[in-house]
Design a protein around this nucleic acid. Structure first.
Length: 493
RNA sequence: GGCAUCGUGGCCGAGUGGCUAGGCGCAGCUCUGCAAAAGCUUGUACAGCGGUUCGAAUCCGCUCGAUGCCUCCA
């Protein structure tokens, strides 16, 4: 099945700042690299949004029939607190503060990262490489860049010479900046920097005596610069030029700009055909960030243990909430918005059961194949999940109309509708219909079913005092009874 | 200060030079012993001021406001 031959996918390319028809470098194959987390603390919800956007993109590309190699790294070294010379490695700092090995920090938060993504029903990337696992590759690239004259060594560190690079290349083309402007606007002068220019960035940093994370190199013991790992790992697994590079909007400058510079300096080729940037998740209108404390952890949402939201929200609700906004738009998290998404999510999920039980007729009052193409059109237009969801709700409305007998559907159309509802909701959006039925909930539903039976007996005897007592008392306990045509069901609030 | 992005109805959130996405809420109806739940049907909008145009919320300019990046950040 090679759907991509009939569906024309367009992607907004940050490099050209326009939507372009997606044509992979190698027909039928897609290479995609996404900047992963620095594992020095628990992954927060804003991080998750970026990764979720690319999870959805990965899912859709696969659905279209592409053979996708999706690389998402783990940064476990080299990410400095700041760009000053005294900047400390984030992981080393955490290790020092907690008095544990740096690799214990890495292990702890890598596990947290994986657990969280699993709860959100993420697909695994094809390769998940680490920076520390690719020190040799990084050293090789530094040597290469030095040889070509775009870097200089000083006091055991190696810096990328941005000014030199800009003479022959365009530093700033991704983020729309001009080096002259940046130099002119340089604020405080860095006190005693080894750098020739403030815009230069570290490829290799000398490790001070007390620095615990260190590797030998031709320039002495040290550690690699943050920007370098992505160049090393993307080149190794996807080649010197590959199709899609993604990441958060906040990485556009300087991180991605530096990646382009490193790749162009070392092999003379533009590394990426389509740059994609996912936008920020805000909380109270402000960017969610670890450093400012304005953030919420996924587990705090799932458990309800936080001061921001009125109740717990399941991972699928959060995922649905995020999918209701376009990946490139800023999304603001609020209690009201989540409550609205929760109701919408349940409405969507309930329609699956309704659809399965639908009686079929000889004609269809719902153009399923036309609807299906509208869903594809939404996704083809730069992965527009909000439009896709609007189409899904159009289907939900028609499913209900069929149930009511207002319109009918043929057996063939019903089967197709079932197939594509499943495809778009579960395979592409990655949502889950969590009807957990463990032993405890079986006991609960047995108990409530008994009460429902007693209530129905009371109602048929017109003993409404008893029936209302059962209903109201259960409501107090957070169990809501729902009287429908086919009997009474219940839900937990 | 520099460079960007954005400002859509009660809330969230798409989109577009002329044909009112969608979700939640509100309202009406159906169902119900009464409710709730569920379903159906519906209003209310494009920050302000100018300009281009037969026509703009959509293009251009200005003003105001918000956010992001410029230093670590998904």
């Amino acid at each position: 099945m090679q759907l991509y031959k009939e569906q024309t996918l367009k992607i907004h390319n940050t490099l050209s700042n326009s939507k372009e028809i997606f044509q992979p470098i190698n027909d039928g194959h897609v290479g995609m690299y996404v900047c992963g987390p620095t594992v020095y603390s628990n992954v927060h919800l804003g991080n998750c949004r970026t990764f979720m956007s690319f999870d959805m993109i990965f899912r859709y590309l696969k659905h279209l029939g592409y053979k996708v190699r999706f690389v998402r790294n783990i940064t476990d070294a080299g990410h400095l607190e700041n760009d000053a010379d005294e900047g400390e490695d984030k992981i080393a700092k955490k290790a020092r503060l907690e008095q544990i090995e740096p690799m214990e920090v890495v292990q702890r938060y890598t596990v947290d990262f994986h657990n969280t993504l699993q709860k959100f029903n993420f697909l695994h990337p094809s390769i998940e490489p680490t920076a520390t696992g690719h020190i040799i590759e990084q050293i090789e690239i530094i040597k290469d860049i030095l040889e070509k004259g775009y870097a200089y060594e000083i006091n055991g560190s190696v810096y990328f010479d941005v000014v030199k690079f800009n003479e022959t290349n365009d530093y700033g083309k991704l983020s729309g900046r001009k080096l002259e402007d940046m130099i002119a606007n340089t604020r405080a002068l860095t006190a005693q920097s080894d750098k020739k220019n403030p815009q230069d960035f570290a490829l290799w940093k000398k490790a001070e005596q007390q620095h615990i994370m260190r590797w030998p190199s031709p320039w002495g013991d040290g550690f690699p610069g943050w920007h370098l790992e992505c160049t090393a790992m993307s080149t190794k697994y996807l080649g010197e030029s590959f199709d899609i590079h993604g990441g958060g909007m906040d990485l556009k400058f300087p991180h991605h700009e530096c990646e382009i510079a490193q790749a162009e300096a070392s092999n003379g080729k533009s590394p990426v055909k389509y740059w994609m940037h996912a936008n920020m998740l805000t909380l109270n209108g402000k960017k969610m960030a670890k450093s400012t404390g304005n953030n919420i952890l996924p587990n705090e949402m799932f458990s309800g243990e936080n001061k921001i939201l009125s109740k717990p929200f399941a991972p699928s609700i959060v995922r649905f909430f995020m999918m209701q906004a376009h990946y490139a738009s800023i999304l603001d998290l609020s209690n009201d918005a989540l409550l609205a998404s929760e109701k919408g999510f349940h409405k969507l999920m309930d329609s699956f059961a309704t659809l399965d039980n639908l009686e079929t007729g000889t004609i269809s009052g719902f153009e399923v194949s036309e609807w299906k193409q509208k869903c594809y059109n939404a996704m083809n237009d730069d992965f527009n999940t909000p439009i896709l969801i609007a189409q899904l709700f159009d289907a939900v409305k028609h499913i209900n109309l069929i149930k009511e007998g207002t319109i009918s559907i043929t057996d063939k159309d019903k089967t197709q509708l079932q197939q594509y509802m499943n495809t778009f909701v579960f395979d592409i959006l990655g949502l889950e219909n969590n009807n957990s039925s463990d032993a405890d909930s079986d006991k609960l539903s047995g108990t409530v079913d008994l009460l429902i039976q007693l209530r129905n007996e009371a109602r048929s005897n017109k003993d409404f005092a008893t029936s209302d007592k059962i209903r109201d008392q259960l409501a107090v306990l957070g169990i809501q009874l729902k009287d429908g045509k086919e009997g009474t069901t219940f839900s937990l609030s």
